[in-house]
Amino acid sequence: MVFLEFEKPLEDLYEQLEKLNEVGEQGGIDVSKMTREIEAKIKDKRKELYSNLTGWQKVQLSRHPERPYTLYYVDKICKKFLELHGDRHFADDKAIVGGLGMIDDQRVVIIGHQKGVNTKLRQYRNFGMANPEGYRKALRLMKLAERFKLPVLSFIDTPGAYPGIEAEERGQAEAIAKNLFEMAQLKVPILCYVIGEGASGGAIGIGLGDKVFMLENTWYSVISPESCSSILWHSWDYKEQAAEALKLTPEHMSEMGLIDGVVEEPLGGAHADPEAMAKTLKSHIKKELTALNKIGVDKRIKMRIDKYRNMGKFTKV
């Protein structure tokens, strides 16, 4: 188990539990009563820790190394999934995956950022930071979805679009802009979930949809708290403050009317019980897709554009 900083009290309790079991085994003593006590304490502590998470703690949770990523959910949610590759122009980006899937009887096109599950794969997936070809692959699949009248399901989980020389040369900005432009007019439903990190342009590049939801322990913002700290505070040390100031939690985003709702995670986060998380997500997706499928194409596009049209706050003088 990997514990985050704020989970230190939990880590201590788990250590106690381990030691107790060791003592019990070695000495042949019955420790079951004490074990149950510590387990109860763990449960209470976890509830307490998770009942009031700060912005920065949610950022940490969204990056938990054991957190499930797109392909985990795809595997659990779909009874069939065919991964499709390549943008047909330059390459196959490993940081964005996509393909055709069946969720029970609902056929879908799925796109999503993908992070690696170990050190080697994290590099292979470029830490979930897509290059232009990733965004263009996603667009190709969305156009495929449109042609065959399949709804699009998008999973967002990125620390940002990759800032590299080649990414710039191949038009990172144009790739993201084009996706926004095309997604606004896509004739099929688009349903988006922030399942981890929702960092800026890299996130919204596959994140414009009829409905956008965030899992409970995720964040969505115009900039990462670290970069925000470095730019506005001229130091990397103010990430906690930046995370608060940016109001990047699902609760804040929901209050501001910038997302359509929050999907509850198991106690302790999605990684504490990934199967339960996948189950919750699946039923949520099915419910939302059923509702979106009922709306006529023109009306749905108009509602989608009008939703974004109304985002923003200003005064009139």
């Binding site: 993201i176 910038l258 985002m311």
Partner: peptide, 8 residues
């Protein structure tokens, strides 16, 4: 913050 992001 996200208000500005959504302007994209």
């Amino acid at each position: 913050s996200a208000y500005s992001l959504m302007q994209m």
